[in-house]
Amino acid sequence: MSSPSPFPAAPRRLGVTGSIGAGKSTVTALLRARGLTVLDADEQAREATREPEVLARIGAAFPGVVRGGVLDRAALAAQVFGDADRLATLNAIVHPRVRARMLALEAAAAARGEAWVVQDVPLLFEGGLERQMDGVLVVDAPLETRVARVAARSGLTREEVLARDARQMPGEEKRRRATVVLDNGGSLEALEVQLDAALARLGVTGR
């Protein structure tokens, strides 16, 4: 008879993604309210770029974007937006640290005895990460609704929002790959009903 492992079992992973303006943040807030730990890839990327070693590598690769020891995110975005090669260079610097940070947070959740964690990853499908998930929720909404939301919160023009949307995987392809699609084109109450049904179907439980 084998002895029990001294290491806690890794939690199962629920991926959450969606097109720009679909309301992914609303869904992750609802998941937190249901007792689930949400690991935010964008937040971890911001934290990673505050690490001195990462900051130094970014500064060397993209002259002028680090000023006074602080990353000028707008200047960096201007250098990589629309340039696949420069974006790949940035990702090669940042993504390994993001993965390491996410794994550390996941290990902490395992130590707390959590059966599931949520991974909030905007480019989950684009990065091929769906294969690492036990289920994927895709948050969606009609295009005009999404454009209006982004324009209202960011001040971007319609054309700028559409340009950013066009650089992501098309919504119909995300829906096709999803385990469950959440329609966030209506009320919050309707979204909550869909979310609770999805969690029940997948057997996802909070703490």
Rank of each mutant, 00 (worst) to 15 (best):
V80Y: 12
R12W: 02
R46F: 03
E192P: 10
P11M: 01
A29L: 13
E126T: 08
R67H: 12
S19Y: 07
A10S: 14
A190R: 12
G185H: 02
V27S: 00
A151C: 14
G15R: 04
T49N: 12
A104V: 02
A110H: 00
R46A: 07
K174P: 03
R146S: 05
A75Q: 12
L36W: 00
F62E: 08
P122N: 08
L71Q: 09
D140E: 13
I20C: 04
S19I: 03
R97K: 13
P122W: 03
D40S: 09
A178Y: 02
W116L: 09
P63M: 11
V136G: 01
L156K: 09
A78R: 15
N184R: 07
A200F: 01
G69E: 06
L103D: 14
D85A: 15
R32I: 05
A151T: 15
G64M: 12
R67N: 13
V54L: 12
Q132Y: 03
R57H: 11
F7S: 11
A108T: 09
A200Y: 01
A190P: 10
G155N: 09
R201K: 15
W116Q: 05
D183Y: 01
V193P: 05
G203V: 10
R67Q: 15
R57E: 13
R32P: 00
P122L: 10
V181N: 04
A48R: 10
L55A: 11
Q168T: 02
R57C: 05
D42I: 08
Q44D: 14
A109K: 07
Q194F: 01
L129T: 10
V180S: 01
V70T: 14
V193A: 13
G135F: 01
E159M: 06
V94Y: 11
